[in-house]
Write a protein that binds this DNA or RNA. Structure first.
Length: 305
DNA sequence: CGCCAGGATTGAA
DNA sequence: TTCAATCATGGC
């Protein structure tokens, strides 16, 4: 049965927080809904008491791609139970109980995070919007909506010039994106192969690409490939970790790495997402960790319980 | 190690 | 209203 609408019955899902939590960059809030593009589909998502309502412009026979993207089959409570039972994690989860991880297309995710380096979320969104408008295939929208575009394929990007990419305001990231697109388009780099590798090898493989350091590799492993133990540490997460877990003295990068790899359990990536969101909504102190700052956060944490 | 490459936005002076 | 800092990769 083809339809342009479906209700996904899912509990414990904070759609707004999930779509706006720095994992994906193409979702826009429109009144009470979120509008975005998944593959070749323009989708409007609305959270209702019964679950998540999805509407598309063109009729859809099989909604598997949407369930996959939203990861509606994940039983969040089971994931949350694997988190360490400590004050900071309880507070982070309490601050946003239905926060989820999406499962995105590897190429779109990789390209997006290559473009993310040394940029803030607003700018990343802007660059990606320009890239899609200029080089993405147009996709079906309802007559009242503005035009929408798919994320441009590696093959498409491989054929454009560095100057055209720079015109999308991506600056020094342009050569990295172009090189990655070409390697993938020419079959020299296989994004599907990554899926079959163990975590550490997959990470090393991604890091062979220019413009992909540890943090960006971890984002792609977590947000596109579903490596739940990947733990990207950006400035927000680092601030959260330092202040919540090492309040007295800054932990070194090495120490922090060891901590994130062992402390948070099999779904560490989810824990990371909660810490990221928590640090952002409470705008953790921008300066180095200080006992006072940590005490303030712990008071916030205590008040949330 | 320190600096720089792009640039919209934030927050301090 | 200026003006410096943000953000995190790689090359020098």
């Amino acid at each position: 049965m083809s339809a342009t609408e479906i209700l996904l019955r899912v509990r414990e899902y904070d759609l707004a927080a999930t779509l706006d939590s720095g994992q994906a960059f193409r979702w826009q809030k429109q009144n009470d809904s979120w509008v975005g593009v998944i593959g070749k589909h323009r989708v409007r998502l609305t959270q209702t008491h019964a679950g998540i309502c999805a509407e598309t412009a063109a009729p859809v026979e099989n909604w598997k791609w949407l369930r996959e993207f939203l990861q509606t089959k994940i039983e969040l409570e089971k994931v949350l139970k694997t988190f360490p039972d400590d004050e900071p994690m309880r507070a982070a989860v309490a601050a946003c109980p239905g926060l989820r991880l999406l499962k995105q297309d590897p190429w779109e995710c990789l390209a997006s995070f290559i473009l993310s380096s040394t940029k803030q979320i607003v700018q990343i969104r802007q660059i990606i919007a320009l890239l899609c408008q200029r080089f993405g295939d147009p996709i079906a929208v309802s007559s009242s909506e503005p035009a929408a575009f798919a994320f441009p394929s590696p093959e498409k990007i491989a054929r454009v010039t560095e100057a055209e990419l720079r015109a999308c305001k991506m600056g020094f990231r342009a050569p990295s994106l172009l090189a990655a697109a070409r390697e993938i388009a020419e079959g020299k780099f296989n994004l599907e192969h990554i899926r079959q590798l163990p975590h550490s090898e997959a990470r090393a493989e991604l890091m062979k690409l220019g413009g992909v350091g540890g943090k960006i590799a971890d984002c792609v492993l977590l947000f596109a490939y579903g490596f739940d133990s990947a733990f990207p540490v950006d400035v927000w997460v680092e601030r959260a970790l330092q202040q919540l877990y090492f309040p007295r003295r800054r932990a070194s990068g090495k120490r922090l790495q060891n901590f994130t790899a062992t402390y948070f359990g099999p779904h560490a990536g989810y824990a990371q997402q909660y810490l990221f969101h928590y640090a952002r909504i409470y705008k953790f102190d921008r300066r180095d960790a200080k006992p006072q700052g940590a005490n303030k956060i712990l008071r916030v944490a205590a008040s949330l319980r």
